[in-house]
């Protein structure tokens, strides 16, 4: 068995998750550095005379300060806008283009395919609910499947049925030899205690 034995849950926006983590870590480092600098200044570690100076020096500032502060403001605004836009970017594949042997082209609606997959999985014994989506590219799509099992289902059985029948049919529909898939199974809490 290759690959990890444990995984983090899949996300619709892997790019945003990564970027958020990096941006917030950098922000944390900047806050930490600023806080430490203020403490060092205030406690006189950078010279006793500096500790007694005003935080904001009185009188006018040098001529270059104001434009630099303004440009900094615009830069922060631009980066923030980029960060906000990024939150909406998903890895979902809405349409799949199939190239025929004779040069023809068919466009397949991703939602139509995933709906069929969902219905097929929900028809399996022991499955309460299924949701599917496609990611990647038209040439190499990936299928993500989230399956909620009903009370007394055998996860192994469901796994076998999904990998055997459902994925084979999806590969056929997409005219692909390979369709990498990730299946997340969840078992709900049984409603009420079973009597025996």
């Amino acid at each position: 068995m290759s690959g990890p034995a444990a995984l983090a849950p899949a996300t619709r926006t892997p790019g945003a998750v990564r970027v958020n983590r990096v941006v917030l870590a950098v922000l944390g480092a900047v806050l930490l550095a600023a806080g430490v600098l203020v403490l060092l200044l205030g406690l006189g570690a950078l010279g006793a005379d500096r500790a007694d100076r005003a935080v904001l020096p009185g009188g006018g500032t040098a001529g270059w300060v104001a434009p630099v502060v303004g440009a900094g403001g615009l830069a922060v605004a631009g980066l923030s806008a980029w960060w906000l836009v990024l939150q909406a970017r998903t890895d979902r594949l809405a349409r799949i283009r199939l190239e025929d042997a004779d040069g023809g082209r068919t466009v397949l609606d991703g939602a139509a395919l995933t709906r069929v997959v969902e219905e097929e999985v929900e028809a399996l014994p022991g499955v309460a609910r299924a949701s599917a989506h496609l990611s990647g590219t038209s040439a190499a799509p990936r299928l993500h499947l989230r399956v909620r099992l009903a009370g007394r289902a055998d996860p192994g059985e469901v796994h076998r049925a999904v990998t055997g029948e459902v994925l084979a049919r999806a590969r056929e529909a997409l005219e692909l030899d390979r369709l990498p898939a990730r299946v997340e199974l969840d078992l709900p809490r049984a409603t009420g205690r079973p009597l025996s």
């Binding site: 068995m1 034995a5 849950p9 996860p155 994925l167 990730r182 299946v183 969840d186 078992l187």
Partner: peptide, 21 residues
């Protein structure tokens, strides 16, 4: 990592069960 991976022979399919499950 809240998902535990189910052993499989299929190289292209990764199945995992939630720890709560």
């Amino acid at each position: 990592r809240t998902l535990l991976v189910v052993a499989t022979e299929e190289p292209d399919v990764v199945t995992a069960v939630t720890r709560g499950g």
